[in-house]
């Protein structure tokens, strides 16, 4: 690993329903100050894993792990208050759709400043300064003006930049981004990913980027974790993706359509083969 101080260290994490159905079936991974993509289809357990790292799972889910450490602390037994201390200060999250994640009744400045109000005691003037600086850092024009605007006046891409500003304003140690671009237009997606990736690198943070589009996120990460049906079936360096050996990773890597593939059919998953492979691995 590039960095000795592990930000996340998880061993045998299991998330299940009350009736015993396991949704995440015992996964291990650790990461330091690096950019890692967590890739999988819907239902693979990638979002549940990310939410467990934020303490955001509903009470109806059953979580257990042999080791569940964030920034060196065993956080699984944390209560809401302790989580609140951690979230927004040490750990931050960017969600899928800014339309639903931003409060429509509050202006942008207030929402970006909220983590500051909660976690630091600053004068109003310093706060405004910080907010404007942050809005500028996420590439939004005219921070002073933007502060007074409301979410409905922003486009999706701008909304996601605001979300990012909220997440980063307290200089957290790491950022979890759950499908941060899937609600955005295609043209804006790369810009937002580029921004997340460069900000994380500048600030020497850890990034866990969750996505179903392996090809798109590969450029913005150093390492890739692949999940399938609750298991971590493959992990490799992003640079190794083009010669991945696991058939699932291979298909995910090559199934995106483009102009060169016209006339041929796209590679699709052979789910039976993968099922037999994962069973072999679990044994």
């Amino acid at each position: 690993m590039t960095n000795n101080s592990s930000l996340i260290r998880i061993e045998s994490l299991k998330i299940g329903l009350e009736d015993g159905t396991e949704l995440v079936k015992g996964i291990d991974f650790s990461m330091g100050r690096e950019r890692v993509a967590l890739v999988g289809e819907s239902g693979s357990g990638k979002s549940l894993t990310a939410r467990s790292l934020m303490g955001l799972l509903p009470d109806s889910l059953h979580v257990q792990a042999d080791r569940f450490e964030l920034l060196g602390e065993a956080v699984l037994p944390y209560n809401q208050r302790q989580w609140n201390q951690l979230r927004g200060k040490q750990v931050a999250m960017v969600l899928q759709d800014p339309k639903y994640a931003l409060n429509p009744t509050q202006n942008i400045g207030r929402q970006v400043a909220e983590p500051l109000v909660l976690h630091q005691s600053l004068s109003k003037k310093v706060r405004i300064e910080k907010v404007e600086h942050m809005l500028d850092a996420v590439g939004l024009p005219n921070p002073a003006q933007l502060r007074k605007m409301y979410p409905h006046q922003l486009s999706g891409g701008m909304g996601q930049r605001v979300m990012l500003a909220i997440a980063l304003i307290n200089d957290p140690q790491f950022l979890i981004a759950d499908e941060p671009t899937s609600a955005l237009d295609h043209a804006v997606r790369d810009q937002v990913l580029e921004l997340i990736s460069s900000l994380v690198e500048e600030r020497n943070m850890g990034l866990l980027l969750i996505s179903h589009d392996l090809q798109q996120v590969a450029d913005y990460c150093e390492r890739v974790l692949v999940m399938y049906q609750g298991q971590l079936i493959d992990q490799l360096a992003a640079s190794e993706l083009s010669n991945a050996s696991h058939p699932y990773t291979k298909t995910l890597w090559s199934c995106r359509p483009n102009i060169d593939k016209r006339g041929e059919s796209l590679p699709i998953l052979d789910r039976k083969q993968i099922a037999s492979l994962t069973e072999g691995a679990a044994r």
Partner: peptide
Amino acid sequence: LDMSVQAEILNLLND
């Protein structure tokens, strides 16, 4: 849809 499912649907539509 997921990227992997998109491939299946696009193949189907072409078919």
